[in-house]
Design a protein around this nucleic acid. Structure first.
Lengths: 128, 128
DNA sequence: TACCCCAGTATCTTTGAGGTAACCAGTATC
DNA sequence: GATACTGGTTACCTCAAAGATACTGGGGTA
């Protein structure tokens, strides 16, 4: 269906610790990006989504299905096969995600530097 | 300094239940919008941020200060006075927030309709 | 003397996000 | 025939964050 996903496509250091922008749940934007290239199976998604537990992936996908962002297709086979695909509505999030990534590219270093400076300032450990 | 803030500027129904885009913590984007028109005092922010408790507002502002998004200025007066103001970095979030709001204006109705349809579908309460 | 103001703290309860482990039904392996 | 494996999902528990409620402090006002 599509190229295999790059298991390193997301930096495990960044996700929610630094990135101040979030689309939907913590993993929604990454799922959208994983599905950008076409439909994917459940365990195919687990690779790039470093450290996501199957439970949380199920929750995320269910919520996205409910919101009309992805479709879920289950094939009556053995072993079972389920494929997820972006809807047109889900695809509209791509531009927004691109804007968020552009912001990060432009401004995240400044934010991290401010944080570092604040944390290492002697003032940050004193009472106000 | 600036016009008083409209206490109805945010819809208490929407916040995180429907809006699939989030900047920073739950309240960060709203704080940025409140500060867009100029510096504001602590209790001035509590009005439009319907239902925020002082504890959470303090936490939010402290985190934003740490990240270099706002500055905090305390005046040694009685009663005490503290003012918060957007930094240049904080101001860069405005375009991103505008993009998120534009997405919502364009697509949120479709998302909510998908959710409503899904929830009222008999299938949603059956086993898979 | 009592009370109010502002900008927060302190304490407790509730919510929910996430981790671990098990499940199912069929298929391959030994 | 018994065991292990497979993919997707579920049940159960834990722990940190969010929220509700109440209180602080110190000068100004009645």
């Amino acid at each position: 269906m599509a190229e295999p996903l790059d298991p390193e496509m997301f930096d495990p250091v960044c996700p929610s610790s630094a990135m101040p922008i979030q689309i939907g749940d913590r993993w929604t934007a990454m799922v959208v990006l994983c599905l950008e290239g076409g439909r994917r199976r459940f365990n195919e998604l687990r690779g790039p989504l470093r450290g996501i537990t199957p439970k949380v992936l199920t929750q995320t996908l269910r919520a996205m299905e409910r919101d009309g962002l992805v479709t879920r297709t289950a094939y009556d086979e053995n072993p079972p096969r389920v494929e997820y695909e972006l809807t047109d509505l889900g695809r509209t999030l791509l531009t927004l995600i691109a804007a968020a990534r552009a912001w990060s590219a432009d401004h995240l270093p400044a934010l991290l530097e401010a944080r570092r400076a604040h944390d290492s300032s002697p003032r940050s450990s004193l009472s106000r």
